[in-house]
Structures are given as C-alpha cells and as structure tokens.
Design a protein around this nucleic acid. Structure first.
Length: 300
DNA sequence: GGCAGTCAAGTACGC
DNA sequence: GCGTACTTGACTGCC
C-alpha cells in the first residue's frame, strides 16, 4: 500500500495547475506555463519522496488546453526530455501514478462532439504517462458517465466506445464508482464485458451501493486487476460535517481512517486520499498507518 | 493588494 | 424548455 494525495501540494509554494483564460491564449504563454507546471511537479515528487508518499495523481491542468483545438503547439516534442526525466525519477523512487480527467470526459455520451472531445482529453493524458515512460500500472481513472434516461443502453454505449479506443488509451483506463449513478456492481458488469479494471471510491460507495460492505467491494475490485497492472487503486475520503452528503472533508478524520484500515485488511491496494488539505492529511494518514504491514514508503 | 465574478468542456433535476 | 447545482482552483478585472 502506497499512500498519496491528488494533484496539488499546499506546502511547497508552487502549483502544477497554473493555467490561463482561453482569451489570453498565446503559444509563449502556454510554453511558459507548461515549463512552470513541470518544474512544480518535480518539486512535488521530491517532497513526496522525502515524506514517503509514493502515490500521486497528476493534475489534468499540467498542459493547459492540451486537448483543445486551439492548441497546435508541439508540447510533446518540446518537453519530451523533461517528461522523461520526471518519469525516470518516478521509476527510481517507486511511485505509483494516476490521472483523473474531470466531469467533462464522458465515454458514453450520446453526443458525438462530447465523445470526440472526451477522447482527445484521454489521448492527452495518456500521452503524458507515455512520455514519462511509465508502464501499465500508471492509470487514468474516469467515471462511467451519464445515464441519459436509459442506464442499460448507456452502459452498452460505454462498452462499445471503449472497444473503439486506441489500445494505448485502453491500457491506461480504469473506471470508478460514483455517488449517484454507477455503483461498484455496475462497474463490475462493465469490467466483465471489457476487462477494464475498477477503482473503488470508498466514500462514493458509502453513498451508492447494493449493500456490499467495504470488504466485499474490495474483493470485487481485486478480481478486476491483473498483476501486470499493479495493485488496485482505492480513493478514500470522508464526509465534511454539516455539508451536503457527498461533500469531501477538509481534514482527515483519524478514527474513520483507522477503522477503514482495519476493515480493509488483508486486501492490499494503493490509496489516494481525496481530502481537501492534501499532503497535510496524507502525512497524518501515513502516521496512522505506520504499523500497517501493507504500507510502503520507499523504493525497495 | 484584495475581492468578487468568471472560467473549455456536461449532466441531472426541479420548476 | 430553462436555469441552477454540482465542484474547484486559478485567472482577471476592478476597486
């Protein structure tokens, strides 16, 4: 079990998600922004090595507008060496890497334009991981998508569109249960038809399930990952007190987290903490898991 | 320098 | 059919 946090680090004084408005797009600005974002990503990796946080989700904003039609800049060629350096650093230190496109990426969209833009975004994120030279354990996690008034047909559409994807993208994709539409059991059905691995979001699972305890959900999960693809990935969060159900917590709740560690044994997985204060909670989680036999904090 | 409104992209849902 | 919530960090214009 590696532990990590998504995208941003609030302690190191830089962001890998620097962007700008479409209206201010210029190639110079794009180039400067990518350079700054990649430099910050390197700083985050170094911070994480120092702290033993070996699971990292890379921000979708690393290369702003990468999948937008406005972008004709050859960022892949221009920054190839830097991406490779980042990837070498990750491999040297035993990092697990993921990416997570946001809500606009919908592989089961009935609208051809939405689908096309989604595929372009997946191609971009896939290219980032490829440029870093990362193996099949580096994943891109998406949700199944919308229901569009007919869930069965929408799942069929996911399967069909997935099968049409370039195989380099298919090798990266994993699906995650969501809090309203597609539960773990739905994701499992899609896995059975496609072989796509399933990510468990424990918080979403608590809000949308078919009665399976976490332990059962983790067992279902484990069956969907091959050894080639590494340990299953799990997203963990808890409810922010006083906010609507589904709102992510600002800080990790120690008792909840320790209970989760206990409940999830002996399943092993890499754990992403979707908590708003990022590395602060991740460091606390690491301390809480210090005695856990599954925990890995440095390269073997 | 600080603040409020806005930002590439979509879906679901209430009225 | 239309407007709004969802979610969220960073940008941008305005004071």
């Amino acid at each position: 079990m590696r532990i990590g946090y998504p995208c941003l680090n609030r302690s190191i004084g830089c962001t890998p998600s620097k962007t700008f408005r479409l209206a201010s797009y210029t190639e110079e600005r794009l180039e400067q922004t990518i350079a700054a974002n990649l430099a910050c990503l390197q700083k985050i990796l170094e911070y994480n090595v120092e702290h033993g946080l070996l699971f990292l989700r890379i921000t979708s904003d690393l290369v702003p507008f990468a999948s937008h039609e406005i972008c004709t800049y050859s960022w892949q060629e221009q920054f190839a060496d830097i991406f490779q350096g980042l990837g070498d650093y990750c491999k040297k230190h035993g990092f697990r890497i993921s990416m997570h496109p946001d809500q606009f990426v919908l592989l089961n969209a009935p609208d051809a334009g939405v689908l096309e833009r989604s595929i372009r975004e997946l191609a971009y994120q896939s290219a980032v991981l490829d440029l870093m030279g990362l193996d099949r354990t580096a994943k891109i996690q998406i949700h199944v998508g919308g229901v569009y008034g007919d869930k069965a047909a929408s799942m069929d559409r996911f399967v069909e569109n997935y099968s049409q994807l370039d195989k380099t993208i298919r090798a990266r994709l994993v699906i995650e249960n969501d809090e309203r539409l597609y539960a773990v059991a739905d994701c499992r059905k899609i896995h059975d038809r496609t072989g796509i691995p399933v990510i468990l979001d424990t918080f979403h699972h608590s809000l949308n399930n078919q009665g399976e305890p976490v332990q059962t959900a983790l067992s279902i999960l484990a069956e969907t990952w091959t050894s080639q693809e590494g340990l299953p990935m799990v997203d963990y969060s808890s409810q922010q007190e006083g906010k609507r159900p589904g709102a992510h917590a600002e800080h990790i709740v120690s008792e909840d987290f320790s209970r989760f560690l206990g409940d999830s044994k002996p399943c092993d997985f890499d754990l992403m903490l979707e908590i708003k204060d990022k590395e602060k909670s991740a460091n606390l989680a690491l301390a809480l898991a210090a005695e856990d036999f599954r925990l890995v904090t440095r390269s073997a």
